[in-house]
Design a protein around this nucleic acid. Structure first.
Lengths: 350, 350
DNA sequence: AGTAGCAGAGAAAGCGCTTACCGGCCCCGG
DNA sequence: CCGGGGCCGGTAAGCGCTTTCTCTGCTACT
């Protein structure tokens, strides 16, 4: 059943010899082709391959065909549930199309992101998916665009998962709208003294969620004073520290909105460590609906994004297998991924 | 700065022509080689490459060199924090060595795992890392071994992250010892009526943790009746349902040990949904110390495994860059990854 | 001054695969 | 009974690289 203990893998050549046919025939019967091969030959080849433990060398195949079966996925941090959920979706959809996913992490560092894209181009991936927020004001942003454009010029496809990243295909996340809806819902529940633990100022996702949230509050006549906006890291610890900072100002608030769930988790812990009861003393809301937030106490109010689905869509968008009109480069609107406000125990009515 | 809008990426040939040197020289100056190249030539080549936006075609390079820069990582579920943390470690260590990581998910399905390994072999990865528990009694297990052996025979390296998987290099997780220590600590805290939500019976990790835990309890004279062992899925929902099942039996217990943290999270939620106060009415303990468990309420008692580190080690073990004697194929012992019992609020003294 | 010896550039032969293209065979119609 | 097409194996020319080997042009020594 298994292979010979030779020093290097069997090649197609070996298989052809073993089967007593030509290289061409072996290739045709093993790796599909427009042309037909006599069934008896095909069988002999397949058996020979089996016997030798042959597997097509994908690299060589890629070189010969001039196209690969690789998808490159860039994420900020694979251990972050937001990204790992997206990755799960991408991988799932990719395996359906027999594509192999390569993951690289950029650690929210534009410089490194750019380097990574450059390095990944060497793989000549069919598709490159960039998950994670764009930033404003980074000098690298422009270089990145140039690099990606040139990647597309040479036959690659690029897909973003974020806000509008024209001219590239994008799975649009309606951060503004989602945050606005959440704010409206919370204001409706009676919250009035609100603080926001926002992400780093230059991260667009953070900006948009903040803006949308502010707008939603305004619709209910609720103000969000600038000193109630704390910028912090996009991580659990960022949320934790941001909350400490907020509490230190002595502000009296009845609600803290963290612009993403991992931060919100930090908020909850910080409140508790400060002797407060999250949900009861101060409401907490997050954004993303990562799996864990329904299991923490109190279960977290948040905005759901179908993360795995987003990953799947990104892949399909890029490979052109998209089933439906998932957004591409246009402004947030009809094509954006629908979000859903989920009210849980962390924000009881006031 | 950026590339020409040609239809296909610049090749080394283009670069050589542009620089007015031979292909060989271009190759040597761009991608290193034992041989020296006149500095002025080298410069011309580098500039030409720059101008054309050239990036080495890694596939072609791999074909020519007969070796790749790819690492394949197999995980059961990338969205599971256990695996995503390990993946983070692997990716981190890999990028240090300029290796690219390809991730495939097997969904805890032996058949699929085998298929995936076969498919991945086509990539001729330098290293294949299999994270996740081995199972007992699966007919595929043997085929997997054969496949992997033949992969190693043809020059690949394999590393497992799990229990002893001789003859392959393994980052040993001392499940028995960790669980035993945990049990000793908990018995010391006064717990006497214990139940275990174990994973699927055929998963070795689950078996070992259960065995170790039982042994630890026994040292304190605490029995674990068979009917107090509930087998359930290795997921959050598994933990949840397992707990419901346990509660339905009407057993009075003062502690539930879930064999991994994600299950423990489910246990906590199930208890709460059943009107019980986890930690107070019934203690809960998990295993792995995934990041979220310190943020749920009550913070979870668990056994820490340095997951990222484990990932890093696995890679180094396989590439031979291992710094220290991280375990390889021997029985659990000196080489195993050290675990640490972490007592948190979910198991107050009784 | 003559030659051995050594750099180091370039030509060319692969690496494992795909895919025109060629040519033998068989079937059909005239 | 003969010629034109299909059909389908095989031959060979790549794909974009690396690497061996050849060969030129020096330096350095006797």
């Amino acid at each position: 059943m298994s292979a010979p203990a030779s020093k290097s893998p069997a090649t197609l050549h070996d298989v052809a010899r073993e089967a007593g046919v030509s290289l061409a025939t072996a290739s045709r019967s093993l790796n599909g082709s427009a042309r037909k091969v006599n069934e008896s030959y095909r069988l002999r080849v397949v058996e020979a391959a089996q016997r030798l433990g042959y597997t097509t060398n994908l690299f060589a195949q890629a070189v010969a065909k001039g196209s690969t079966t690789t998808v490159a996925l860039l994420v900020a941090d694979i251990a972050d549930p937001y990204f790992s959920s997206i990755a799960a979706g991408v991988i799932d959809a990719a395996s359906e199309e027999n594509l192999v996913v390569t993951i690289a992490v950029t650690g929210r560092n534009s410089q490194r992101e750019l380097d990574t894209v450059r390095a990944l181009r060497g793989q000549r991936p069919r598709v490159m998916i960039l998950a994670g927020s764009r930033t404003t004001g980074s000098p690298f942003e422009e270089h990145l665009r140039a690099e990606l454009s040139s990647f597309e010029d040479t036959g690659g496809k690029v897909a973003f998962i974020s806000q509008d990243a024209a001219p590239f295909a994008t799975v649009l996340l309606d951060n503004r709208g989602g945050a606005r809806d959440l704010a409206v819902a919370l204001a409706g529940l009676g919250y009035r003294d609100v603080a926001v633990i926002a992400g780093p100022a230059e991260i667009r996702t953070a900006q948009e969620r903040l803006a949308g949230f502010t707008a939603g509050l305004a619709e209910h006549g609720v103000q969000l004073p600038a000193e109630r906006i704390i910028h912090a890291d996009f991580t659990r610890d960022g949320g934790y520290r941001g909350t400490q900072e907020l509490l230190a100002t002595g502000a009296t608030v009845d609600l803290i909105f963290a612009v993403n769930d991992v931060m919100a988790v930090g908020v909850v812990s910080a409140l508790r460590d400060a002797g407060l009861v999250p949900g009861q003393d101060i409401g907490v809301a997050g954004y993303d609906d990562i799996p864990t937030v329904r299991d923490i106490t109190p279960a977290l109010t948040t905005v759901r994004i179908p993360l795995e689905d987003v990953g799947r869509r990104a892949l399909r968008l890029a490979t052109g297998t998209a089933r439906d009109g998932a957004a591409t480069g246009g402004p947030a609107g009809p094509g954006a991924i629908p979000t859903e406000t989920i009210i849980r125990e962390s924000t009881p009515p006031r």
